[in-house]
Write a protein that binds this DNA or RNA. Structure first.
Lengths: 374, 374
DNA sequence: ATCAAAACTTGAACCGGTTCAATATCGGTT
DNA sequence: AACCGATATTGAACCGGTTCAAGTTTTGAT
């Protein structure tokens, strides 16, 4: 029973934890998953001392510290973070997003991972696919794994998820969507303003019939953009006609809705896509319909697609400061972990219009100007 | 001491685990993080019974099962998966990729997460940024968290990472890159064949001077593509000139290398980009240089960018079956978790050329054909 | 009614790192 | 040599879900 631990009486014995292919002489060097007790035995110290070395507590004498470090190196010891987090913090942050295939969320994750990696954290990402019930279950899985905190990009109805987070007192930062719920920190774009500014710009170019395309009207981010849309449209003289269509960009229905809009009495002269996926679908549909931009219609997309600058003509976008959003959200969460009772904050960042050639005065204006010789 | 647990003598007492805002009467219903022992006490059964209910073991009588389930519901009990994994499996799978901002890796993650979510697993993703040393540290973090298995998209030199995985006997599946190391399962495209077929097609169009653009020659995936490139070029008559340039697509140097290639004695008539990021950069550079495709030069990209079909003219690509790769990798890993001693397998999938307008006969051929009246 | 087999229940020990009260060691004084 | 405070070390209890040997109840056949 050479492999049994220090004197402790044990009831259930594990099989010898020796890596495959090791002969008995090497056994001590090839324990498959050495523990603090293995290290302690090898260094001839107590487990508490090993733990103190692990955590860099200066209370340990240099001599013992060296012995312990040598033992760790000899055994190839890697601390078991699962055991560590059973007591204290897990140093895992949960991230819940609708999807990752969108460059926007992928970039968020990448920034979070970089920040986490530098600070001894790991990211556990789950996907809600935009479904509140799935969001609840996935966030439940996160809190069940003792994550120290959660970064949530919510669905259109995150109420039960938020209640769960509060009930389990898991610190959370809400990104993108801003809810009424005062119990959380928020990091988001001022979407109302971003949309208002963008639409004001579009109207300023002479457009009087706009079409805004969204995937899901129920999202608070979309609602705030619609508010901004209406504010800008309502302030314009002469009146501006604004329509909103909702649909899945991967669906044929979307193309039919667009054709229908063009066939209407007041066809839109400017199309605004609410995200990259919609913009991609839209550009494909317009190409198939042989509609050119900006000649026939102006285009603008939120959530800058990577290809915006290389389609021809290039696509004007409202650019979100993704990295900054991620950094703010992370630092908010870290602050909250340190001081859980501080009042929640709402951090608002600005998105900026990047004008490109897809945005131009509408066709009739061009005709008018030509006719007037201007 | 109403909040103290069943008889067990305890040395250190925790503060009462009652959610904020609860008064004493509600306390029993608002334990912040109820444990099996809380559930057991409330249901009037032993902890072992609660555990059996949790794990759906049919050994528990219907009466007790009901009582326990009621107690769980009343208390809002969520099992602590950290504690569960201290004993047995963690039901966490580690995923190590170079980045996520690439649509390819984002799509992999998305597919893995969907599979994981349906089978009671969570994904913990870490990024290597293509650096072997960072890869080692991040995978070390994963095994330190007791992940049941690892899916690794390796850097150019994953040797120490692979050794770590073997030493800690953590099952792993290697995706994309295929190494000599026989200790692991592999899921990858047959890149040599994919490249050979693609280049054969390009040569068949009449191209005799090709330029292949890669980010990192040291990657095994790139080396196998280069082999395929050379095989196809070597088999052609008359001889085909093939050049390879390596560079960071976000770097100016890349544009200069391309100009230089065009200024050379045998300028390339077909450009092959090894991934989406390079393709994006390339298209931007060509637009800036006012080089048109396929008129001036043919284009082909590996790793289909989302925008391939909407640039004009559309970009020909070699399409990878991303979902299938992910599904195969996942099922391989699940199989290995069940039977760790089974012989490792190598699964090879096929990529397919999607010919689009960016791929056409080279300019001089067109002139030749015209001159010959063909 | 009797009893053995089958079905169910119990709870202490366990996983591995951390904590902290108790104990041991050391340097410096008198 | 005796004593004291400071510093270092120890190890049992702990986190919470799981396990299984031992104990209890039920079932069913006699």
């Amino acid at each position: 029973m050479a492999w049994q631990r220090n004197g402790r009486p044990r009831k259930h014995f594990r099989r010898p934890r020796v890596a495959q292919g090791a002969n008995e002489d090497q056994a001590v060097n090839l324990i498959e998953k050495p523990t603090v007790r293995d290290v302690a035995r090898r260094a001839g110290v107590a487990v508490g001392t090993v733990s103190n070395v692990l955590n860099g507590r200066s209370i340990v004498s240099a001599k013992r510290r060296t012995k312990v470090e040598k033992a760790m190196a000899d055994l190839g010891y890697v601390p078991n973070r699962v055991a560590q987090s059973l007591r204290g913090e897990s140093h895992v942050i949960g991230l819940c997003t609708p999807v990752t295939s969108s460059a926007y969320f992928a970039m968020l994750l990448e920034t979070f991972e970089r920040l986490a990696s530098g600070q001894g954290y790991e990211i556990m990402q789950v996907l809600s696919h935009g479904d509140p019930a799935l969001e609840f279950r996935r966030v439940e899985a996160l809190v069940g794994r003792n994550v120290d905190g959660v970064i949530l990009i919510p669905t259109y109805d995150p109420q039960s998820t938020l209640d769960l987070l509060v009930q389990r007192s898991t610190p959370a930062v809400i990104v993108d969507q801003v809810m009424r719920d005062r119990r959380f920190d928020y990091v988001a774009i001022d979407d109302r303003k971003a949309m208002r500014d963008a639409i004001t710009h579009v109207i300023g170019l002479g457009h009087r019939s706009l079409l805004y395309m969204v995937r899901d009207k129920r999202l608070s981010i979309v609602q705030r953009r619609i508010e901004g849309f209406k504010q800008a449209a309502g302030a314009a003289r002469p009146a501006v006609a604004g329509a909103i269509i909702q649909g899945d960009p991967d669906d044929d229905l979307f193309a039919r809705q667009i054709s229908k809009a063009f066939a209407s009495r007041h066809p839109p002269t400017a199309l605004i896509a609410s995200n990259s996926a919609i913009a991609l679908s839209l550009v494909g549909i317009l190409q198939a319909m042989n509609v050119r931009w900006p000649d026939d219609v102006s285009l603008l997309a939120f959530d800058e697609p990577v290809w915006a600058a290389i389609v021809s003509p290039p696509l004007a976008v409202v650019r979100h400061p993704i990295q900054q959003i991620a950094i703010e959200a992370w630092s908010r969460l870290m602050t909250r972990l340190r001081s859980p009772d501080e009042n929640p904050k709402r951090i608002t960042l600005d998105a900026h219009l990047v004008a490109r050639r897809s945005l131009a005065p509408p066709p009739y204006t061009q005709r008018d100007s030509k006719a007037a010789g201007v």
